[in-house]
């Protein structure tokens, strides 16, 4: 009898906890990812095609962008195993503007959709190299302003354009909202994380993957810093 009461009590606490957590007892994770070593020199891309559109502004190789104070841009930070949470939006947008992908790394909910825009008004094609999701290679001619795609399985997918060989982008399909991408200073922020101890995956397209552990407390911002090297 005693046991039953204990169980009921615990269940009550858990339910109460979840309800409370969904209300305001959540924490957040913020931090900065930096580059260990000397920042690589900026490399100009050779625009060989459609110069009147692609050559308007100078294009640089963005496969590794190190900002001031060695912050690395476009690093994907993922809190693994956190439950609940809502996506701010089910839609994400990837623009092809000036023959680059803006943003270079785009986060898409697996339940949502990705609008691929063609602001350039020239022929692009979106060619993805995925394994969990179906690989696509679809043309996006001038008249096709928006192409909407779904990525139902969590995966980080490389996308490129066969018409403009220098174009590379990354689509981060995720089934939870606890994903952040660093800005040019290397900073990121992930809001509304339920308290707990988590593993955090830090991934960059050229610098590879790191795993760290972090403890998130209610109403507090946990800090995470990491250094990536070549």
């Amino acid at each position: 009898m005693k046991v039953v009461w204990t169980v009921v009590a615990i269940m009550g606490l858990v339910v109460g906890g979840v309800v409370a957590a969904s209300a305001q007892d959540v924490g957040s994770l913020g931090g900065r990812i930096s580059f260990a070593g000397d920042p690589p020199a900026k490399k100009k891309l050779d625009v060989t095609k459609d110069k009147e559109v692609c050559g308007k502004t100078e294009l640089y190789d963005e496969s590794l962008v190190v900002g001031p104070d060695k912050g690395v841009k476009n690093v994907v930070v993922t809190v693994v195993g956190a439950k609940g949470g809502k996506f701010a939006s089910q839609k994400a947008t990837l623009d092809q503007r000036g023959c680059t992908y803006t943003p270079r790394v785009v986060v898409v909910p697996t339940t949502g959709e990705l609008d691929i825009l063609n602001s350039d008004g020239i022929l692009h094609n979106i060619h993805t190299y995925s394994t969990a999701n179906p690989a696509i290679n679809k043309a996006q001619p001038k008249f096709k302003k928006v192409l909407t795609e779904k990525f139902g399985k969590p995966e980080i997918i490389k996308a490129s354009c066969d018409a403009h060989a220098w174009m590379t982008g990354w689509i981060v399909a995720t089934d939870h909202p606890f994903v952040g991408v660093t800005d040019e200073k290397g900073n990121f922020a992930i809001k509304n994380v339920p308290p707990g101890n988590y593993k955090v995956e830090i991934w960059h397209e050229t610098l590879g993957k790191q795993v760290k552990e972090v403890s998130i407390k209610a109403k507090e911002e946990a800090k995470l810093t990491a250094e990536l090297k070549k």
Binding site: S130, T131, K158
Partner: peptide, 13 residues
């Protein structure tokens, strides 16, 4: 690639 979570045969459309 680092992004692929697990080895799975490719599927199409």
């Amino acid at each position: 690639p680092a992004g692929s979570p697990e080895a799975k045969p490719p599927k199409r459309g």
